[in-house]
Amino acid sequence: MSGRGNTGNQPNIVRDYKKAFGQFSSNRTQRLESLKPCEIELDSQEDVAGGVHTIDFEKGDIVIKQSGIYLIIACPQIGKVRGTIPRWIDFWVRLNNVDVPNSNIRTVIMDPQEKTVVPLNAVLPFNRGDTLNIMMAAETIGEGLGIEAIQPDGEPTIPSIIVTLVQLD
């Protein structure tokens, strides 16, 4: 399960939030190894400065702890390893193992130098305990299509995906 929020300079203060929020990312490059839809795995959650995490995650599963309507924004950093043929890659949202209709987006990658970020957004009602996955599928598996974490010199790491969830109501 995700790490708890670091209390930082104010260890005795426990913050309580009325609305849930969460920011997740993955610092691992994930390339498709099968033509089947694949769950994107997350490996870190932003600290909440002395508070408790209002949304949890385990690998690719984002677990909602408070019922409500949420805005979801997921931004995968897309790339490929080889090949110059334009290839598509799709991203969508899956809720409780069921694909969410009208959440799918597609981008086309031409060559390995091309890096792009495609924002995926949705507003969905969630119940406590619901699990959310960001899914991806691509046209081919031979060209290393997927999401890439990049480590530039003198800059913070570019995560392979950043997912933001904010409770609206």
Binding site: E58, D61, G129, D130
Partner: peptide
């Protein structure tokens, strides 16, 4: 796979 998440969901429910 996902035993913990399954259990968590059932516990919440």
């Amino acid at each position: 796979p996902k035993y913990n998440v399954c259990r968590l969901k059932l516990t919440y429910l």
